[in-house]
Design a binder for these strands. Structure first.
Lengths: 332, 332
DNA sequence: CTGTTAGCGCTTTCAC
DNA sequence: GTGAAAGCGCTAACAG
C-alpha cells in the first residue's frame, strides 16, 4: 500500500498544507523541511499524480497520436519528442493508430478521457474532423509531419515539395528523361512529394506518362507492387522516385526479386533516410528529415499553447531537409 | 470547459449515483437511460478517467519501460503490446530509457507516480534493483525480451541460447571452422546468445580464439567496430554471428566500406529479422523473433497479475524462434 | 432502480 | 510559515 501525504502528516505532525507546500517547492522552515524529507525517505512516499491532476487540472502528460508505431520514422520522432518532453517534466501517452482512421478516431476520445494537457498528432486521416472533440475539449493540438488540408492547428513539418524538387535535380542533371514515381496518395506527405516530383519534371520539360505515376498507400506492399508494375512496362523508366521509407523498401524488394541491379538497371531516389540504407549496395540517394528538430519544435509549440504563452493564430513551420548522396544514380 | 457528471445531473435531473451506474454498465430504467444518453451527446460528456482512477485506484493504464524506442525491434513489440492492451481496455504509458540506466531508474519513479496498474519492462540494466520501488508500491511487473539475473518477476522471452545454437548449425554444416561472434555483453539477450554460440562451437569441436570473440554494446557502432576489427585480423574468420539487429547493421556497414562482399568474402548469420534484410543482396540468414506472441503473452501475464487471478510464483516463458534462410552463407 | 453521503489524495484559499 | 477546511469528478456503500 503506497503511502500518502496523510502518512507524512502523521509521521511529521505537520499539516497537509505545509507538506503540500514543500512538495510544490514553497517555503518551509528548515527543520520542517528536514522532517518531511526524512518521512518521505522512510515511507517511500511518491506523489500521486492522479490526485494532483484532479485538482490542478493538469496531468503533465501529452498524448501522442501516431499513425503507426512500427515505422522507423515514427521511432525516431517519438524518441525526440519524448526527450524534449522529459526535459520539461512531461510524459507521453502514446497511442498507435495502426494506419487506421477508425482506430485513430477512437484514440482521440481515449486521450480526452485521460485528460492529457495537449496532443501531438501524426495523423492517418487527411481531414481534420476527427480532431473536433479535442478542440471542443479545449486541448491544444500540434500536427507533426503531416498537415491537414482543412486544419486550424499549429503544424510542424518539412518542406516536402521543395525537398523533392531539389532532390529530383540529381536525376535530371544526370540526363534521366524517363522518370517514374511511386507515391502514397492517402496522406499529405505523399501528395506533396508527388507534386514536387511533377513540378520538377514539368520545369525540366519532361513528360510523365500516366503509367509512370504510381499512386498507392504508405506501405511496403505498395512499393513492391508499384515497382513490379514499372519493371514490366515495355517502355521501362530509367529512374524512379519513391516517396517514403516503406515504399522504398518494397520497391527495392521488387528489384531484387527481379534480379535487377541499381544503378545499372535502374536509378533510385528515395525519402526518409535510415541508417540501414547505408549498409546496402548501392547506397540509395535519400532525402533526410530532421527528426530531432521536428520533435523539438513540435514540443516547443505545444507547450507554448498549453501554458497560454501565445494567442497567435495557428502557425505552420516547415523545416528543410538534407540529401544523402549514395551511388544509386547512373549518369546517362 | 469539459462537462462533468454534474452537468449531466443538472441536465437530466437524475442523481449522480444513477448516472455513475449507467456509465459503469449498471441497470437503469430505459427512459432514464435515454435521458442520460441524450445529455451525454448534447454536452459532449467524456468520463474523466483521472477522477475515476482516484477512487477506483485503477488507471487502466500500463507503463512500458523500453530500453530504446528507436530500435525497430521495440517498434514491433510496442505495436503488439499496444494492440493486446487495447483489446482489454488498457492504454500504455511508454517511457524511453534511451539505453541509459540512469534514465531508466528515473522513469520507474515516474510510472509509480502515474499510478499505472502494471508495468512491462524491456530493461537496460542487468540487475533488478531498479525495480525495487515498483515492487514496494505493489505494482505487478512483467519482463519482456530480457530477463534479469536476480529477478523475481514474470518474464516472457525467447529461447536465446537454443535458437542461436540451432542457427549456428547452418554455418557448421557448411564446413565453416573459423567462426567469429559479435555480441553485446551488457544485456541478457546478448550474453545468452553468446553462450549459445560458444556451446555450438564447443559441441562441434571448434575453437574460438579470443580475438574472434568480440563483446560490446547493443549498438550500430559496436557492430561496425567489431567487424572492422575482425576484418583486419591476419587470420580472418570465414563467418560471423551477430547477436542483434543493431550489431548486424553496423557489421554490414563495415563490410561494405571495406569493399568486401558476403557471402563470397565472409558468411553472415544475424539476429532479429527485419524486412529490410530481405531487400538487400545478399539476404542475410536471420533468427526471427515472434514479436506478436511475445507482446500478447506479456500482456496476458500482466493482466492476470493485475486482476489477482494468480498467486503463483514468478513464471518464465521462453518462446521459440524461426530461421529466415537467406544466401549469406557460403559452403566451404 | 434511485438518491444521499462519504471520501479517494491532493492543492488551495483563507485565517492565524 | 502553518493549519483548517473545502473541493476537484467520480464511485461505492447504504438506505429508501
Amino acid at each position: 500500500m503506497p503511502s500518502t501525504i496523510k502518512d507524512i502528516k502523521e509521521y511529521t505532525g505537520l499539516s497537509l498544507a505545509t507538506i503540500s507546500k514543500y512538495l510544490n517547492g514553497g517555503n518551509v522552515l528548515p527543520e520542517n523541511r528536514a522532517k518531511i524529507e526524512k518521512a518521505i525517505n522512510e515511507l517511500h512516499y511518491e506523489v500521486n499524480e492522479i490526485a494532483r491532476g484532479l485538482v490542478t487540472k493538469k496531468t503533465k502528460t501529452v498524448g501522442i497520436l501516431v499513425f503507426s508505431i512500427t515505422s522507423p520514422f515514427s521511432g525516431m520522432i517519438l524518441h525526440h519528442v519524448g526527450q524534449a518532453l522529459r526535459k520539461k517534466g512531461y510524459g507521453m501517452l502514446i497511442v498507435d493508430s495502426c494506419d487506421d482512421e477508425e482506430i485513430e478516431r477512437k484514440n482521440v476520445n481515449y486521450l480526452i478521457s485521460k485528460k492529457v494537457d495537449g496532443i501531438i498528432v501524426l495523423p492517418v486521416a487527411s481531414k481534420g474532423d476527427f480532431l473536433k472533440p479535442v478542440k471542443r475539449a479545449g486541448i491544444p493540438v500540434v500536427l507533426l509531419d503531416r498537415a491537414l488540408a482543412d486544419s486550424q492547428y499549429d503544424c510542424v513539418r518539412i518542406t516536402n515539395r521543395k525537398s523533392t524538387y531539389y532532390a529530383m535535380q540529381e536525376l535530371i542533371k544526370r540526363n534521366h528523361k524517363k522518370i517514374a514515381v511511386i507515391a502514397s496518395e492517402r496522406e499529405y506527405t505523399g501528395r506533396e512529394r508527388f507534386n514536387g516530383f511533377m513540378e520538377a519534371m514539368r520545369d525540366a520539360g519532361l513528360e510523365v506518362p500516366v503509367e509512370y505515376q504510381v499512386r498507392g498507400k504508405h506501405s511496403i506492399a505498395s512499393g513492391y507492387n508499384g515497382m513490379m508494375k514499372l519493371l514490366t512496362l515495355k517502355n521501362r523508366p530509367t529512374a524512379v522516385f519513391m516517396s517514403n521509407y516503406e515504399i522504398t523498401l518494397g520497391a527495392m524488394l521488387a528489384i531484387n526479386e527481379s534480379g535487377l541491379k541499381s544503378p545499372d538497371d535502374i536509378s533510385l531516389l528515395g525519402f526518409d533516410d535510415q541508417l540501414f540504407f547505408h549498409v546496402m549496395q548501392p547506397q540509395v540517394y535519400m532525402v533526410e528529415q530532421p527528426t530531432q528538430a521536428m520533435g523539438e519544435k513540435a514540443v516547443e509549440l505545444l507547450l507554448k499553447r498549453i501554458n497560454g504563452e501565445t494567442q497567435d493564430g495557428p502557425m505552420e513551420l516547415a523545416l528543410g531537409t538534407s540529401l544523402h548522396r549514395g551511388n544509386s544514380i547512373k549518369t546517362l
